[in-house]
């Protein structure tokens, strides 16, 4: 279990429901390491500003995280965390490795408006 203040996704069913029932969803799939923590922090600090987006994290080492780990967009990813942006149930963008708050913000503005 990730120790963040974000909502966690704990099963594949939950993941499916979340992306299908919400127009805009951002999911950061990682561990509690130095490359992942800044992304969780950035998401936590943006939650209030982006009310149209649902923010979640997912533990990279859980079986259900295969939905992100093995996602087509993550095929070439070699760095944690894997961060996904979903619109109307479809992954519209994904990034690998650490991202600054500025980069997260710009992705939210570009892909989840």
């Amino acid at each position: 279990m990730l120790q963040t203040n974000l909502n966690h996704i704990n099963s594949e069913d939950e993941f499916k429901q979340i992306i299908e029932n919400n127009e805009n969803v951002m999911i950061c799939c990682g561990r509690m390491g130095p490359m992942c923590l800044p992304v969780y922090d950035a998401m936590e600090s943006l939650e209030d500003k982006y009310e149209n987006v649902k923010f979640y994290d997912m533990d990279f080492d859980t079986p259900h995280a295969h939905v992100i780990r093995n996602h087509e967009l993550a095929r070439k990813f070699m760095g944690l965390p894997f961060t996904f942006y979903f619109k109307n149930g479809q992954a519209v963008h994904a990034t690998t490795s650490i991202q600054t708050k500025k980069q997260v913000k710009s992705n939210l503005d570009e892909y989840l408006t």
Binding site: R31, G33, P34, M35, C36, K76, F77, M78, G79, L80, T95, T96, S97, I98
Partner: peptide
Amino acid sequence: FKGFGISYCATCDGDFY
């Protein structure tokens, strides 16, 4: 190449290699 072959954290990304 950050995250596509360049890493700054062995404990984070070692598995991929």
